[in-house]
Design a protein around this nucleic acid. Structure first.
Length: 578
RNA sequence: GACCCCGUAGCUCAGCUGGACUAGAGCAAGUGCCUUCUAAGCACUAGGUCGCAGGUUCGAAUCCUGCCGGGGUCGCCA
């Protein structure tokens, strides 16, 4: 039961009825009409802007129209009272019987409460992480990984057909560099003294196991061959091992993407060549030169002719090179082929989760999709995640990028656990920078939002357990009308908002809204629990009143479902005990 | 030079995609209370020209323009 969605229909119906009564012939555009929780609870349970957005169509003032709509709404069985306020808001106060129905519906839906069919099965591709497979994931990848994963889950729960995808950049020159670095470790594993890793190669010790694996599988057979002979072998083994490592790192954060898409495969299948031929056929390719970058012009700037894609025709700032001046494909060329492949696989939402340093990619990704699929066929959504700064008890964590000394994703997860990492990464909107303090996020106190929310869930479980020990088991039908305290009503109203909130978060591609909602909900719940300290009659377990206790325990189950369902979207474990 | 993000209470941040008289939380500060159905406290008070200036609108923290401040990105690299 989505209370707000239901009432939106009621309100729209009332507007339509008024229009009919007034002989308004023009078709009504009801899209801007909303039904939302008022900011201030004293305004009632549901507020609508209907009169203010529709008054022009009716040729009246907002308040005059509000009167007409309000008269209709007042007749609805679930409406206790209607008020017109401010410039023309209509505030509805619902009958008290509505809350038992909301709670009953939450219990009936259980894990499904909050899910929606909004996406209508539309195919959405969420691409995230996509780090170069040249080493372990580092802390810079954590946020995008968690954000992408939560967004994918959010879309899944709102009716999209979601694929979680990782694009492997395995076609470029850096893969050869990686293979050469691994070959050095191979020689090392064979007992050679390799000295310092030459600059330009990857120095990380994570390549040692690759060297050892090469010895295990190939013995000394690669050692004396020319590079042209060993490179393809080493490259493949290294790439496989790097990807296994990355997948394991992601798994530590409970992230499991379904598709790992190889850039190289686009070249091998001829998709890149086909894509360029396509664009050429559309007249979108030409030979030309690009202007030098503004600002600091590089010393070695050379003006050369190359094969360009008319990206500016689709909103990009400059045309983008498909072929280098030496005729080789650019990285951008495989990007286009990759987008084309996604579109061919039927995706209508191409969602990219990128680091803020990739902001410059937004326009070109949009341009690609427009050029390939036309204006309205495919939605491109790019979400940028700002940097995460690490702290330890207030002191910034320093790391030198040299010698491969960086804090890895694994380091962070191993230290504080996946739940803490996931929740904290989502407890900030993605485009704002984030401070992550190892000390604070593991603290067991009200100041730590992860703890606060998880504890709320654990507390519901604990009281339910206690009640069960007292012999109070929850029947299917609880007397929710016994919940009469304002704090209980407020909490029920908060629970009623959940489905609407999930839809809004999905539509905006903003999973952080779920995290903030859970924080607020946990706050409401803890506050209610605390009221029981002063007022024993507000405790959840009231021994002398079994019926009330039953209702309260059923209420707890509803709260628990919402907390658990929200946490599930974020990928955070709902702890049952702490 | 261009583009992107950010600028809201002393601090850290929300603000539901333009709404209401009183812009919200948490921390820190001040005052009082408490030792519990699960302990890692609770309640109240105080605190803001929403960076600045214009504009659109019945209505702007939210949209547009121009500034100011902070961060980031910008060639055939990947």
């Amino acid at each position: 039961m989505n209370l707000f969605a239901e009432f939106l229909q009621v309100i729209r119906g009332a507007v339509t009825d008024v229009a009919a009564a007034q002989d308004i012939a023009a078709p009504l555009d009801l899209a801007r009409v909303t039904a939302e929780p008022p900011r201030d609870a004293t305004h009632g349970d549901i507020a609508t802007n209907a009169a203010m957005v529709m008054n022009k169509a009716f040729g009246t003032s907002p308040r005059a129209l509000a009167e007409l709509i309000a008269d209709r709404l007042a007749k609805h069985v679930d409406v206790a009272s209607v008020e017109i306020a401010g410039p023309g808001f209509i505030n509805l106060r619902l009958v008290s019987g509505i809350w038992p129905r909301v709670l009953t519906s939450i219990l009936a839906l259980g894990e499904s409460y909050g899910r929606s069919a909004m996406g209508g099965g539309r195919k959405a591709n969420v691409e995230y992480v996509s780090a170069n497979p040249t080493g372990p994931l580092h802390v810079g990848h954590v946020r995008g990984a968690v954000f992408g994963d939560a967004l994918a889950q959010l879309l899944t729960e709102t009716g999209f057909d979601v694929t979680r995808e990782y694009y492997i950049n395995d076609a470029g020159a850096q893969v050869d560099v990686l293979a050469r670095s691994a070959f050095l470790r191979y020689r090392e594993a064979l007992g050679e003294s390799i000295g310092d890793i030459p600059s330009g190669l990857y120095p990380g010790s994570y390549l040692k196991p690759v060297g050892e694996a090469l010895v295990r599988d190939y013995g000394t057979s690669l050692r004396d061959k020319p590079e042209s002979a060993w490179l393809p072998v080493v490259r493949e083994v290294t790439m496989d091992m790097m990807m296994d490592m990355i997948r394991a790192d992601l798994a530590a954060l409970n992230i499991r993407q379904e598709v790992f898409f190889s850039e190289k495969s686009l070249h091998e299948s001829g998709a890149v060549a086909e894509t360029i031929a396509d664009l050429r056929a559309k007249g979108l390719v030409y030979q030309g030169t690009l202007p030098p970058p503004k600002g600091e012009v590089p010393e070695d700037w050379e003006d050369r002719e190359q094969t360009l894609f008319r990206a500016t025709q689709f909103g990009d700032d400059v045309d983008r090179p498909l072929l280098k001046s030496d005729g080789a494909y650019t990285y951008f060329a495989s990007d286009v082929a990759y987008s084309r492949n996604k579109i061919a696989r039927g995706y209508r939402e191409l969602i990219y989760v990128l680091g803020a340093d990739h902001a410059g990619y937004v326009k070109r990704l949009e341009a690609i999709a427009r050029a390939l699929a036309g204006d309205d066929q495919v939605d491109v959504v790019v979400r940028l995640c700002q940097l995460v700064k690490l702290f330890r008890a207030g002191e910034p964590v320093r790391m030198s990028k040299r010698a491969g000394e960086f804090v890895t994703l694994r380091d962070v997860v191993d230290e504080v656990g996946p739940d803490v990492v996931r929740f904290m990464m989502l407890f900030r909107k993605n485009e704002a920078p984030l401070d992550f303090d190892f000390a604070k996020v593991t603290e067991q106190s009200k100041d730590n939002p992860v703890f606060y929310v998880q504890y709320a869930h654990a507390r519901t479980c604990s009281v339910i357990r206690n009640a069960a020990e007292e012999g109070v088991l929850v029947p299917d039908k609880a007397r929710f009308d016994r919940l009469e305290d304002d704090a209980e009503r407020a909490l029920a109203r908060r629970l009623a908002e959940f489905p609407r909130l999930v839809e809004a978060a999905a539509a905006a591609h903003e999973p952080h809204r779920i995290a903030f909602y859970l924080f607020d909900l946990a706050g409401d719940f803890h506050a209610l629990w605390n009221k029981g300290k002063d007022l024993p009659q507000l405790r959840f377990i009231v021994k002398e009143d079994v019926e009330l206790t039953l209702a309260r325990v059923a209420f707890l189950r509803a709260i628990r479902y919402v907390l658990a369902n929200g946490l599930r979207i974020l990928g955070v474990t709902p702890a049952e005990e702490m």
